[in-house]
Amino acid sequence: MIFAIKRATLFLSIFTTAAFSQTALQQQHDYAICLYNSEEYFDAITEFKRLLFFDGKNEFTFEANSMIGKSYKAGAKFDDAIRYFVLAQIAAPSKDKVFETQIEIIRCNILRRTTDRALRILSDLEADPSFINNKAEINYWRGWALMFDDRWKDAAAEFKKIEKAHPLNAIAENINEQIYSVTLAKSLSYIIPGAGQFYTGHYFSGALSLAWNILWGYLTVNAFIGNRIFDGLMVGNLLWFRFYRGNIQNAEKFALEENLKIINNGLKYLQNEYNGEKP
């Protein structure tokens, strides 16, 4: 009888400890999730790390690492975020979770502008037969990676693969049409000084550039016609050539500046107006 009571007590104590520990971990998990949902990312990371530390049976390894990664990402700490997403990926319980985590890593790479890395992971996912049904999602994130890499035409092509009328396809194509060709701006200025500036809408600068080149060109030619070879060489080299080169560099600078404005406006539009998933 005493033996039976002892056994029952022992069983009860083991059971209670196990149940209590399970509840405690679950409570810890819920608390951390709650902090994450209330955008208290720093505290959320601390509590998820506490969960990981006390989770002896590794029941929450995947979720805790994944949530730490998400919290770091929300705080723009992309390197740390990737580190934890990789840990989550190692502990992922299913192929779906592996894919989900890989996408998170890709999104971090897009945001920290390591586009090559993002594209490489996307290619690896595409080559993996397990993810044959996730083609649309792969194309979607490839499109985003290309947009962040200023390859708007390629990005539009990726979105077109998902759906012809994909809203991002139209946006990417529109931005691609607005972008100035740097090569064209430079080439125009090679042929007619100031033309590159006119092409990018900088009319005053273009006119000024043209005027300087006409002045120094006239003096150079005039010196050669008047047989003042030394004068011609010096004015040509030190003034005309300098202004001619400056005009080409100027045209390139304006094209790049204008493109930056267009791209930033495009990204701002995507951030504020686009309702789909973003990196």
């Binding site: 209590f20 405690a24 819920d30 608390y31 709650c34 208290e40 506490r50």
Partner: peptide, 17 residues
């Protein structure tokens, strides 16, 4: 409201940790 809920959870959070 989520924060309020979190704080109530934090009270319940196990003393074990």
């Amino acid at each position: 409201s989520i924060l309020f809920f979190c704080y109530s959870l934090s009270f319940a959070q196990s003393q074990l940790f």
